[in-house]
Amino acid sequence: MNKFKKYINNVNISRFRFWFQIFAFIIMVYGGFLSIDIGENLPTFSCPYIDKGGGTCFLMGLQHRFTLPIDQLISFRGLAVLTSVLFFVSWFIFFNKAWCGYICPLGTLQDWFTKLRQKIGIRYSNYSEAKFKKLKKIKYILLGLLILIPIFMANSIPFIGKLSHDWAVPFCMICPGRTVLPLFQGDASQLVIDYGSKTKMIFTVLGMAITGMFFAGAFFKKRFFCFFCPMSALQFIFKKLGFLRLIKDGTKCTKCGDCYRACDMGIREIADDIESKDIIKDDCMMCFKCVAACPEEKCLKVNFLGKTIYEATEEGFYKRQKGKK
């Protein structure tokens, strides 16, 4: 048992993750061809705009469900919203935010861009501390809007009235999942500007612009889009329920910052916070690169239902650093 534990702790997590992500990507993007359908309400960008994807993104359904008049929303029809959230949570609960680190096809795609940049040998860029604090709020604003806009489609706002139908699934309209992921099935049909109405046009142009930014951003900044992702914000609300946990023992931490260096999301607290035990922050994608980069015995840990499945060790650290190309 001890040997097995040691083996796991010595694992090169980046390599494991690389293959796991490819596997998950295939299921999410090509699942339909293999007659796999994981289901609806997934806490990840398994986008239904992909013709034969392997599951459905929760955000799409969420935006639809909120297009109900308020009185219905609080009546029994609201139950539909509730059950869908329940489904979402039960999916989420197993992997917690590791959905982002290991499964989300859009996340994986960004990691591939990072790999490409590294191959070419171009430096990455980072946000300063102040910028980081400002920008990280955007995802909550997006989350708010993607719920409020559908509500205002069914309920009138004073002076403006109801929003037209062109406002449907507003986040999907600007989500790079819709434009980019279908490309992997050779489907570029989402990459068009819809001149049907002014609103539609603005949305699709915005969507195209964001797609462009998605590519350019992901190239220079690790996980550029994830930083703004409303799914990430939504997940964070439920993080306390997750079975999978990232745990830190602050008494063992030297604040060396090795973990922060490894963190693609640039989360400073992972190194500097020695108080919190449950160290998952809203931007974290639970990739566990930090655990692999920490040189202090048992300082960072991955727990599943309270049991440690992976932890920082001196030996693991040493082996991984030595094995670096």
């Binding site: 430096r123 990455y124 090795d258 260096r261 040189p295 650290f317 670096k324």
Partner: peptide
């Protein structure tokens, strides 16, 4: 000799700051 550096990307731009 206690503290150990960790670099993420095997390139000078990451190794020296690490």
């Amino acid at each position: 000799l206690y503290d150990m550096p960790a670099y993420d990307e095997g390139a000078l731009y990451d190794m020296i700051p690490a």
